[in-house]
Amino acid sequence: MSNKLYTLDAEVRANLGTGASRRLRHADKVPAILYGAGKEAVALTLEHSKVLKAQEDEGFYAHILTLNIGGESVEAILKDVQRHPYKPKITHLDFQRVDPSHKLHTKVPVHFINEDKATKGGNVIAHHVTEIEIVCLPKNLPEFVEIDMAKVAVGQTVHLSDVKLPAGVVSVELAKGADHDQAVVTLNAPKGGASEEAAAE
Protein backbone atom coordinates (compact mmCIF):
# COMPACT_ATOMS: atom_id res chain seq x y z
CA MET A 1 0.00 0.00 0.00
CA SER A 2 1.24 3.46 -0.83
CA ASN A 3 2.31 5.76 2.00
CA LYS A 4 0.26 8.55 0.45
CA LEU A 5 -2.35 9.58 2.98
CA TYR A 6 -5.82 10.80 2.14
CA THR A 7 -7.26 13.09 4.79
CA LEU A 8 -10.63 14.84 4.84
CA ASP A 9 -12.18 17.13 7.42
CA ALA A 10 -15.69 16.19 8.48
CA GLU A 11 -18.31 17.57 10.85
CA VAL A 12 -20.98 15.69 12.77
CA ARG A 13 -24.43 16.71 11.56
CA ALA A 14 -27.51 16.69 13.74
CA ASN A 15 -30.11 17.64 11.14
CA LEU A 16 -31.11 14.52 9.24
CA GLY A 17 -33.65 13.78 6.52
CA THR A 18 -34.11 14.56 2.85
CA GLY A 19 -34.71 18.28 3.33
CA ALA A 20 -31.63 18.75 5.49
CA SER A 21 -29.47 16.84 3.00
CA ARG A 22 -30.81 18.97 0.14
CA ARG A 23 -29.88 22.16 2.00
CA LEU A 24 -26.39 20.82 2.63
CA ARG A 25 -25.86 20.10 -1.05
CA HIS A 26 -26.98 23.62 -1.97
CA ALA A 27 -24.33 24.89 0.48
CA ASP A 28 -21.58 22.90 -1.31
CA LYS A 29 -21.57 20.19 1.36
CA VAL A 30 -21.77 16.42 1.04
CA PRO A 31 -23.83 14.40 3.53
CA ALA A 32 -22.15 11.17 4.60
CA ILE A 33 -22.44 8.29 7.04
CA LEU A 34 -19.71 6.57 9.05
CA TYR A 35 -20.39 3.10 10.44
CA GLY A 36 -18.74 -0.17 11.46
CA ALA A 37 -16.21 -1.48 13.99
CA GLY A 38 -18.99 -2.20 16.48
CA LYS A 39 -19.78 1.49 16.99
CA GLU A 40 -22.90 3.53 16.33
CA ALA A 41 -23.30 5.10 12.91
CA VAL A 42 -22.50 8.82 12.75
CA ALA A 43 -23.96 11.28 10.24
CA LEU A 44 -21.30 13.57 8.78
CA THR A 45 -20.86 16.56 6.50
CA LEU A 46 -17.86 17.15 4.21
CA GLU A 47 -16.82 19.95 1.86
CA HIS A 48 -17.96 19.01 -1.64
CA SER A 49 -15.09 20.76 -3.41
CA LYS A 50 -12.48 18.86 -1.38
CA VAL A 51 -14.22 15.51 -1.87
CA LEU A 52 -14.56 16.17 -5.60
CA LYS A 53 -10.83 16.89 -5.87
CA ALA A 54 -9.83 13.87 -3.75
CA GLN A 55 -11.96 11.44 -5.76
CA GLU A 56 -10.12 12.34 -8.95
CA ASP A 57 -7.31 10.09 -7.68
CA GLU A 58 -8.05 6.40 -8.12
CA GLY A 59 -6.42 5.69 -4.77
CA PHE A 60 -9.26 7.52 -3.02
CA TYR A 61 -11.44 4.46 -3.61
CA ALA A 62 -8.90 1.88 -2.37
CA HIS A 63 -6.80 3.63 0.28
CA ILE A 64 -7.49 3.76 3.97
CA LEU A 65 -8.67 7.34 4.47
CA THR A 66 -8.35 9.55 7.53
CA LEU A 67 -11.42 11.52 8.60
CA ASN A 68 -10.80 14.39 11.00
CA ILE A 69 -14.00 14.63 13.02
CA GLY A 70 -14.05 17.26 15.74
CA GLY A 71 -10.36 16.86 16.48
CA GLU A 72 -10.47 13.05 16.37
CA SER A 73 -8.80 11.12 13.55
CA VAL A 74 -10.75 8.11 12.34
CA GLU A 75 -9.45 5.65 9.76
CA ALA A 76 -12.04 4.47 7.26
CA ILE A 77 -12.54 3.14 3.75
CA LEU A 78 -15.02 4.42 1.21
CA LYS A 79 -17.82 1.89 0.70
CA ASP A 80 -20.26 3.75 -1.52
CA VAL A 81 -20.56 6.94 -3.56
CA GLN A 82 -23.83 8.39 -4.82
CA ARG A 83 -23.67 10.89 -7.66
CA HIS A 84 -26.03 13.27 -9.40
CA PRO A 85 -27.36 11.60 -12.58
CA TYR A 86 -25.85 14.19 -14.92
CA LYS A 87 -24.08 16.94 -12.94
CA PRO A 88 -20.47 16.55 -11.68
CA LYS A 89 -21.79 16.41 -8.14
CA ILE A 90 -21.43 13.86 -5.33
CA THR A 91 -24.65 13.53 -3.34
CA HIS A 92 -23.73 11.06 -0.57
CA LEU A 93 -20.80 9.05 0.82
CA ASP A 94 -20.67 5.89 2.93
CA PHE A 95 -17.58 5.28 5.04
CA GLN A 96 -16.73 2.16 7.03
CA ARG A 97 -14.48 2.42 10.08
CA VAL A 98 -11.24 0.47 9.93
CA ASP A 99 -10.30 -1.80 12.84
CA PRO A 100 -6.66 -2.95 12.51
CA SER A 101 -7.56 -6.34 13.98
CA HIS A 102 -10.56 -7.02 11.71
CA LYS A 103 -10.43 -7.97 8.03
CA LEU A 104 -11.80 -5.65 5.37
CA HIS A 105 -14.15 -6.78 2.62
CA THR A 106 -13.61 -4.39 -0.29
CA LYS A 107 -12.65 -4.03 -3.96
CA VAL A 108 -9.35 -2.95 -5.50
CA PRO A 109 -8.77 -1.75 -9.08
CA VAL A 110 -6.86 -3.82 -11.63
CA HIS A 111 -4.03 -2.10 -13.51
CA PHE A 112 -3.22 -3.58 -16.92
CA ILE A 113 0.36 -2.65 -17.85
CA ASN A 114 2.23 -3.00 -21.18
CA GLU A 115 -1.00 -3.00 -23.16
CA ASP A 116 0.80 -1.26 -26.02
CA LYS A 117 3.16 -4.25 -26.36
CA ALA A 118 0.31 -6.75 -26.20
CA THR A 119 -1.68 -5.03 -28.96
CA LYS A 120 1.17 -4.91 -31.50
CA GLY A 121 0.12 -6.50 -34.74
CA GLY A 122 -3.51 -5.62 -34.14
CA ASN A 123 -4.17 -7.89 -31.16
CA VAL A 124 -7.25 -6.88 -29.17
CA ILE A 125 -7.54 -6.81 -25.38
CA ALA A 126 -10.91 -7.69 -23.84
CA HIS A 127 -11.26 -6.54 -20.22
CA HIS A 128 -13.78 -8.66 -18.33
CA VAL A 129 -13.34 -6.99 -14.94
CA THR A 130 -11.65 -3.79 -13.81
CA GLU A 131 -11.64 -4.51 -10.06
CA ILE A 132 -11.30 -7.54 -7.80
CA GLU A 133 -13.23 -8.17 -4.61
CA ILE A 134 -10.88 -9.05 -1.76
CA VAL A 135 -10.65 -9.73 1.97
CA CYS A 136 -7.59 -8.74 4.01
CA LEU A 137 -6.41 -7.00 7.16
CA PRO A 138 -6.09 -3.20 6.81
CA LYS A 139 -2.27 -3.39 6.92
CA ASN A 140 -2.29 -5.65 3.83
CA LEU A 141 -4.72 -3.59 1.73
CA PRO A 142 -3.17 -3.06 -1.73
CA GLU A 143 -3.74 0.13 -3.68
CA PHE A 144 -4.26 -1.91 -6.86
CA VAL A 145 -3.55 -5.28 -8.45
CA GLU A 146 -1.29 -5.39 -11.52
CA ILE A 147 -1.44 -7.63 -14.61
CA ASP A 148 1.41 -7.49 -17.15
CA MET A 149 -0.20 -7.87 -20.57
CA ALA A 150 3.23 -8.39 -22.18
CA LYS A 151 3.27 -11.82 -20.52
CA VAL A 152 -0.14 -12.84 -21.86
CA ALA A 153 -0.14 -15.02 -24.99
CA VAL A 154 -2.46 -14.36 -27.90
CA GLY A 155 -5.65 -16.34 -27.32
CA GLN A 156 -5.01 -16.59 -23.57
CA THR A 157 -7.53 -15.62 -20.91
CA VAL A 158 -6.20 -14.58 -17.52
CA HIS A 159 -8.42 -15.81 -14.68
CA LEU A 160 -8.54 -14.82 -11.01
CA SER A 161 -6.42 -17.87 -10.16
CA ASP A 162 -3.67 -16.49 -12.45
CA VAL A 163 -3.55 -13.12 -10.66
CA LYS A 164 -0.84 -12.85 -8.02
CA LEU A 165 -2.33 -11.17 -4.97
CA PRO A 166 -0.13 -9.73 -2.20
CA ALA A 167 0.50 -11.77 0.94
CA GLY A 168 -2.52 -11.81 3.25
CA VAL A 169 -4.96 -10.86 0.49
CA VAL A 170 -7.67 -13.35 -0.58
CA SER A 171 -10.02 -13.21 -3.56
CA VAL A 172 -13.65 -13.36 -2.42
CA GLU A 173 -14.76 -15.19 -5.55
CA LEU A 174 -11.98 -17.80 -5.51
CA ALA A 175 -12.75 -18.53 -1.86
CA LYS A 176 -16.18 -19.75 -3.04
CA GLY A 177 -14.62 -22.52 -5.13
CA ALA A 178 -12.97 -23.30 -8.46
CA ASP A 179 -16.19 -22.69 -10.38
CA HIS A 180 -15.93 -19.01 -9.37
CA ASP A 181 -12.59 -18.55 -11.15
CA GLN A 182 -13.71 -15.51 -13.14
CA ALA A 183 -12.08 -14.35 -16.36
CA VAL A 184 -10.21 -11.09 -15.88
CA VAL A 185 -8.77 -10.26 -19.30
CA THR A 186 -8.30 -11.94 -22.71
CA LEU A 187 -5.79 -11.16 -25.45
CA ASN A 188 -7.44 -11.87 -28.80
CA ALA A 189 -5.83 -12.13 -32.21
CA PRO A 190 -6.88 -9.50 -34.75
CA LYS A 191 -10.03 -10.39 -36.64
CA GLY A 192 -9.00 -12.50 -39.61
CA GLY A 193 -5.52 -12.85 -38.06
CA ALA A 194 -3.15 -15.77 -38.36
CA SER A 195 -4.51 -17.71 -35.40
CA GLU A 196 -8.11 -17.49 -36.69
CA GLU A 197 -7.04 -18.57 -40.20
CA ALA A 198 -5.20 -21.57 -38.72
CA ALA A 199 -8.23 -22.52 -36.66
CA ALA A 200 -10.44 -22.32 -39.75
CA GLU A 201 -8.15 -24.64 -41.69
Rank of each mutant, 00 (worst) to 15 (best):
N3E: 15
K4N: 10
L5C: 14
L8A: 00
D9F: 11
V12N: 07
V12A: 11
N15R: 15
G17P: 01
T18A: 15
A20G: 02
S21C: 10
R23P: 04
R25K: 02
A27L: 07
V30Q: 04
V30I: 11
P31H: 02
L34Q: 02
Y35T: 07
Y35W: 06
A37S: 13
G38C: 02
K39M: 13
E40P: 08
A41V: 09
V42D: 07
A43E: 08
A43P: 05
A43W: 05
L44T: 02
L44H: 00
T45E: 13
L46F: 01
L46A: 08
L46W: 03
S49C: 13
L52A: 14
L52K: 15
L52M: 15
K53F: 12
E56I: 14
E56W: 15
D57V: 12
F60C: 07
F60G: 02
H63N: 11
H63M: 10
H63L: 08
I64H: 05
N68Q: 13
G70L: 01
S73A: 14
S73C: 07
I77D: 03
I77C: 01
L78V: 03
L78S: 06
L78C: 01
D80C: 06
D80P: 01
V81F: 06
V81Q: 02
R83E: 10
R83A: 06
Y86G: 11
K87A: 08
P88V: 00
K89E: 11
I90E: 03
T91F: 08
H92W: 08
V98H: 00
D99Y: 03
K103Q: 09
L104Y: 07
L104H: 04
T106L: 05
K107I: 10
V108G: 00
V108E: 04
V108F: 00
V110M: 05
V110T: 05
H111N: 15
D116E: 14
D116S: 10
A118M: 05
A118L: 04
A118V: 03
T119H: 06
G121K: 06
N123F: 04
I125F: 00
H127F: 14
H127G: 08
E131G: 07
I132R: 00
I134V: 08
V135Q: 11
C136E: 04
K139L: 10
N140G: 05
L141Y: 05
L141R: 04
L141D: 00
P142C: 03
E146W: 06
D148T: 09
D148Q: 06
M149R: 02
A150E: 09
K151T: 09
A153R: 10
V154Y: 04
V158Y: 00
V158P: 00
L160K: 00
D162A: 07
V163N: 03
K164D: 11
L165I: 03
L165S: 08
P166S: 04
G168I: 06
V169L: 06
V169T: 06
V170M: 13
V172S: 09
E173G: 10
E173D: 12
A175C: 07
A175L: 09
G177Y: 03
A178E: 14
A178M: 12
A178R: 13
D179K: 14
Q182W: 14
A183P: 09
V185W: 00
N188K: 15
A189V: 07
P190D: 05
K191F: 12
K191T: 14
G192C: 03
G193A: 05
A194D: 12
A194Q: 15
A198R: 15
A198N: 11
A200D: 10
E201S: 14
